[in-house]
């Protein structure tokens, strides 16, 4: 029986997303030691890292919801 199979690991888009977001959650792209401006006492770069982290969480949600379908549950019902 042919099932609709989709695995995140086989999707180039998933890999591109993960690589880009991984690059963004590493703080290599800020001037060394800089912290100004502060927003509510948080250095700007920390906010950018947190935003990138949130973007990764959202991307993960998208990957799980749309790119992962192995039909393992249907096996159960057969």
């Amino acid at each position: 029986m042919k099932k609709n199979i989709s695995e995140p690991v086989k999707k180039p888009l998933v890999w591109i997303g993960f690589v880009v977001l991984f690059a963004l959650i590493n703080p290599w792209y800020f001037p060394a030691g800089s912290w100004s401006p502060l927003v509510f006492g948080i250095p700007y770069w920390a906010l950018i890292i947190l935003t990138a982290s949130l973007a990764l969480s959202i991307f993960i949600t998208w990957v799980v919801m749309t790119q992962w379908e192995t039909g393992a549950d249907e096996d159960e019902e057969l």
Binding site: P8, V63, V64, A72
Partner: peptide, 26 residues
């Protein structure tokens, strides 16, 4: 703030899961 890494590293765990959990579960 150098230790802010503790937030994204926990997200990384889920990212790594996605590379093997779907097939492993099946």
């Amino acid at each position: 703030y150098q230790y802010l890494v503790s937030v994204p590293f926990f997200i990384m765990i889920i990212m790594v899961y996605l590379l093997f959990a779907p097939r492993l579960y099946a």
